[in-house]
Every structure is written in structure tokens, then in C-alpha cells.
Computed example of a mutant assay.
Amino acid sequence: MQASQTPTPPDRTNRAWSRILRYGLVLWGATVLVTFVTGNTNLLPTIVLLGSFLVPVTFVAWAYEHARGDNVTVELLFSAFVIAGVLGVLGASLLERLLGPSPAMFIGIGVIEEGAKVAALVFVARSMAHRTPRDGLVLGATVGFGFAAFESAGYALNALVTERGLSLIALVETEILRGLLTPLGHGLWTAIVGCVLFAASAGRKWRVTLGVVATFVGVSLLHALWDSAHVIAFRLTMLLTSQPWQERLMRTGRVPELTPAQTHLITLMDWVGLAAISALGVLWLLRLWGRHSGRGNRSGPRDERPRDNENPPDIDDT
């Protein structure tokens, strides 16, 4: 009888994130199809919202199911996604107005957007009495995905409105592309910073260690490389394959017309660059997860009794 009273672990086979993705894709696809058939523009906001939020919400649900700690509640996740996501977008938009066109512009954008997301993360988690690296990973990913969702909605709206009127095809293409790339961008980078920041700030007081600073600089550089991947691919292609007439145009500050072979090469280099940047980010996160996954992930009273050969956690992981 005693065994029957033992609490059973949560059923991991009941994956909410999988249902969210499946049902969301069906609803988004149905809405796109009906809009194509009927031309009903009242459905366009539904396409924008479903397409922009489906992947971020799915990955937040996945992170919560696979890496949650007792300190992260559904209410806190909602606040991190919506409040921090909006605050991050607003802060980044205001600060990015200060940047001028220059080779360092992408670095500035990376620092500003990552800084805005970290500030929003700290704001949402300010009342947590106890923080673990896993909490930082989940909340950081949630803030990043919230930022990505609202940003993607803006990009989708811009793609919809063209000089020739509303373009449903451009809207759908933009949402598909950003949906595929979203898991490897904002959510990944802020999860890395959140994990290291929370590892250094287990109590109520926030601590900015050398490891935290180095991590922030690292993800900001990944962000800058991601944003500049197309420009880098263009310049490399011109360096390797440019014709004399193209070089003359570039010296005058004009962008030359590309040959079909050059267009394909730029696309290939662009995707290879994004894949390499994504691999670096994923490997970095996996390294942090492997290092911190076994450390205190429970809230509430902790056993303060000293244990033999117990060392304090390394809070300066980068």
C-alpha cells in the first residue's frame, strides 16, 4: 500500500509542445489557404500572429518540459515571454536609432539587442528568491523567443505591405523563413546568457562576473555575425568572382548586378555561415547544460549541512 502513495513523475510522453506545433501548423496553413481562395484581408492578422508566434511558443513549451526547475512557474514564463519580449523590442528599437551606417553597425545591433533582452530578463526575474542555471536557461530562452516573436510579426507586416499593394506570398515566405531560423537565434543566445548569469546569481543579489561579461560579449558577436552573414557572403563572392565592370561600379559606391552564378554562390555562403554560427551557439549551450544540469534545481528550503568534498559551483563559465 505504501508504494501506491509514492508520487509518480510527470508523464513526459504527454508532450504539449508537439501538440502546439501540430495544431498551430494546421491552423496557420488553413488560414493561408482560405485567404488565398477568398481574398479576405480580415484573415491577414491571424496569419501574421500565428506564423510569428507558433515556433517561439512551441520552443518555450519544449524548454519548460525538458529543462524546467521548480522555481519557474507558468506565470513567470508568460511574463518573460510577453513583458520581457515587448520591453526588449522597445528598448532595442530606441537604442538602434543611435547607430549610423558603418562596418561596426552589426556589432552595435548585437550588443544593443542582447543587452535589451538581458535587462528584460533581470526585470522579470527580480523577485525570484533562488535562481539556478536551469532557471536562467529556460527564462532566458523564453525572453529571447518572446523578442523573436514580436520582431517576426514586424518583419511579416513589412513583407506584406509592398509598393504594389498587399503581398500574401511575400508574407508567407517571410514567416516560413523566420520560423525555420528562430530556434537558432534570439532564444538560443539569451538562454546562454541567462544560464551563466543565474549561475553567478544564485541568491537575490545579481552578480556580474567576468564569466557573465565574456558570455555576453560572445553571444553579441554571434548575433552580429548572424546579422552580417549576407553582407559577408556578398563581399567574399565579389572578392573571388568579381568582373572588372563590377569592380568599377563598386568603387563608385554602387552595387553591381550579379550574375546567376554569383547569386547562387552568395546564397550558399550565406547559409553555410548561418549554419556555422548556429552550430557554435548550440554546442555552447550544450556545454553549459552538461555542466549545470545536475546542480541544485529545486526551490524551497535547501539542505545547508556541509558535505564532504563539496566544492562551490564554478560561476564563471563561459
Rank of each mutant, 00 (worst) to 15 (best):
A170G: 15
V172K: 02
V172R: 02
E173M: 14
T174P: 03
I176L: 15
I176W: 06
G179L: 05
L180D: 05
L181G: 13
T182E: 14
T182I: 06
P183F: 10
W189M: 14
A191Y: 07
I192R: 04
V193W: 04
L197N: 09
F198S: 00
A200K: 00
A200L: 01
A202P: 10
R204G: 15
R204W: 03
K205W: 02
K205I: 07
R207M: 08
V208A: 13
T209C: 08
V212D: 00
A214F: 05
T215E: 04
V219I: 08
V219N: 11
S220G: 14
D227F: 05
D227K: 01
S228V: 04
H230P: 00
H230Y: 05
H230Q: 07
H230I: 05
V231S: 13
V231I: 12
V231T: 14
A233F: 05
F234S: 00
F234D: 00
T237F: 07
M238F: 10
M238G: 10
L240Q: 13
E247S: 13
T252H: 09
T252I: 03
V255S: 13
P256H: 12
L258P: 02
L258H: 02
P260N: 10
A261D: 14
A261E: 15
A261I: 10
Q262K: 06
T263S: 14
T263K: 09
H264A: 15
L265S: 12
L265Q: 08
T267V: 08
T267I: 04
T267M: 09
A276R: 03
S278R: 04
A279Y: 09
V282L: 14
L285R: 03
L285Q: 06
L285Y: 08
R287I: 01
G290P: 05
S293V: 12
R295M: 12
R295L: 11
